[in-house]
Write a protein that binds this DNA or RNA. Sequence first.
DNA 1: CGTGCGATGTAATATTGTATCGTGCGAGGA
DNA 2: TCCTCGCACGATACAATATTACATCGCACG
Lengths: 156, 156
Amino acid sequence: MGRHDHHLHAGDALTEAARQRLTTKGEQWTGMRAAVFDALAGFDTPASAYDIAEAVSKAQGRRVAANSVYRILDLFVSANLAMRIESANAYVANSHPGCLHDCIFLICDTCGQITHIDDDRLTSGVREAASAAGFTPVRPVIEVKGSCADCAGTAA
Amino acid sequence: MGRHDHHLHAGDALTEAARQRLTTKGEQWTGMRAAVFDALAGFDTPASAYDIAEAVSKAQGRRVAANSVYRILDLFVSANLAMRIESANAYVANSHPGCLHDCIFLICDTCGQITHIDDDRLTSGVREAASAAGFTPVRPVIEVKGSCADCAGTAA
DNA sequence: CGTGCGATGTAATATTGTATCGTGCGAGGA
DNA sequence: TCCTCGCACGATACAATATTACATCGCACG
């Protein structure tokens, strides 16, 4: 689809890429952060901070508080390791942490699955439209709610 | 900016337009709905359901529960009398209820003010991109966080 | 007069997000 | 070695947002 190489990662490779990126930015890659990242990457739909707290709690056999998860998610978002889906109050791991994009998310109302597409022509168009209106864009949020290919048939 | 006539409404005229639109759709225009609409239209920044509940409570001299407000806001959104700002968990009145648009919201992180622009070229581009990915778009959410013209200077 | 239905009220609860303060631990200096 | 300083994390409380279940009210209709 896109023209450039995204270095898609999965599993351990993804975790490793995340670690690299975080340490490169001068942040620590702690056990807790690794656990949160693994939990996040383990979901196949966007996960709320509480979902993640629960997953990490289970994985570690001890209770992990939501606010710790929030802290780490905020860090991840700022480091581009994860993205927040505003219309779902949830988070997804970024499968190509090295690339900076204004992502476009497609969110299936039926199954909750999300896919993300990159279209710099569109996103820069949005930024330009904002600028033209005298606004200084910082973070575009472009999300489309609807039905994914799988659910489009199912849900009449 | 836009090419077509938006029939911008304000104050009583806006309320009246809202009433018209709702009744046209076979819904009732009740006192409660009018009160919620007035409260919503009275805010100059997006208002949360609880903000509105409080405003209506004050106006009516009695306690109005959040869930009544949510019900009515949902109705308003579905009738295009109001729009939900996903990234702010809040609502704004639609000043041109007659027109259907995929709106683009510009949300100032500093003052909370929002402006909305219509750019069918962009929004249809987003819909097309989603369709091209095998996705059936229902409701695009396009919001840009940043600084409005007034705040851009202030907040260095 | 019932009866049904849409709108609203009441209450409880679930979910999401923040604030505050304490604790442990490692890096680096006296 | 010991100190202490900052960072990550824990614990707790709380605030804000959203939903659920059920009761009630009033009105149109037979």
